[in-house]
Design a protein around this nucleic acid. Sequence first.
DNA 1: GGAGTTGTTGACTGGTCGGTCCCGAACGTA
DNA 2: TACGTTCGGGACCGACCAGTCAACAACTCC
Lengths: 209, 209
Amino acid sequence: MARPRTFDEADVVARARRAFAETGFAGTSLDTLLEATGLARQSLYNAFGGKKELFMRAFLADTAEAVDAVEAVRHGSDSPITRIRAQLVHVAVQHGGAQAAPSLFTKAAVELAGQDDAVATTVAAAFEAMRTHYAACIADAQTAGEVDAGADPGALGAFFVAVIEGMSTLGGSGATRATLLEIGLASMAAIPVTPLGHEHLGAGDGDWT
Amino acid sequence: MARPRTFDEADVVARARRAFAETGFAGTSLDTLLEATGLARQSLYNAFGGKKELFMRAFLADTAEAVDAVEAVRHGSDSPITRIRAQLVHVAVQHGGAQAAPSLFTKAAVELAGQDDAVATTVAAAFEAMRTHYAACIADAQTAGEVDAGADPGALGAFFVAVIEGMSTLGGSGATRATLLEIGLASMAAIPVTPLGHEHLGAGDGDWT
DNA sequence: GGAGTTGTTGACTGGTCGGTCCCGAACGTA
DNA sequence: TACGTTCGGGACCGACCAGTCAACAACTCC
């Protein structure tokens, strides 16, 4: 009963994510956004409501993806310790390298968490969710006898959240993939593994070149 | 032979640092800057050259301070391991708490490293300097027999840089001082200390309330 | 005390910001 | 095929942006 849209809403959000991730919220003008997404001024306004609303769509999508990436640490057939290492390697591969795209989540957290309440609460909730995922994984490793029972899963969870945020910042500032891998692997040593757990700390997995 | 300035240049830079740290470069208008520094439009222009130049002044000052804070880890009468812990506690105290002021260095790195070459090179140099300071401290600990000789000082250095950047990001996003302390202390466990070194990992130092 | 130099002040500029309005075009339904 | 509805493109809006200009004020040196 009406003219159909000539653009895919999800695709527009994905392009907006890239644009905002490059230049931030304040640094990305509406014109830049239109060029990046390919749609017309009024179309963006009709479909999303405005610059701020489109940013929140992109930001929430990126946040959900970032949390999901950490959530993967809770599932899998291999050892909890191995899953954490694999996840850290994944972060290093994603944020390291030539193109150097800092995540929109990190960028928005640094730029806007102190100014916008909606962003601040979303960021806080995401950090807390990530921390919980890591902590649950550590707790799993404890029940499996791979990690010292005296370790504090909550503290280690917060620690790993800080590590991946630091990796994101360094990666966005030009750090090489090799450096990020060094960081991720070095952080693994903060987990007090039992002799049993050491069996799972040996080999790396796959190629990340 | 001329009318003297009614403002202190260093003071203006300090105020500009606070303003830019709050809202970033693109998010801070010249009018906001004038209100924050208290000087008139043309005065800012005469003394500094413009918004970008004043930002660079503030950014370089903050960067130097951040690097110096890490450099402190190389000096002192107490054990190298103790110095690192003290420095991490210092970072936690500085970036944690109610006022939640993210460092301008971190903010500029995330916002502009991908767009401005001058910022990118400064950030990269600062990260490298910090990494070198941490690495030298770890090497000291190795020669003192407090840290396992097989440890990689360079990798641990990069690791600690990532940790303090992560703490800065989390702190700027509302994380409590207690959480940041948890993170900093948890990261210490990534250092493979010898039985001798364990003597220096015991008590905390001072009150940071 | 006069001249010269510098800082301060406020009005002003062209350009860009995000957002709105309007009209022709494209499509589904009747 | 005629109608109603939505889309897309361009013109347009007031507000704000960083930066400039010219007149005035304060100070030092001669």
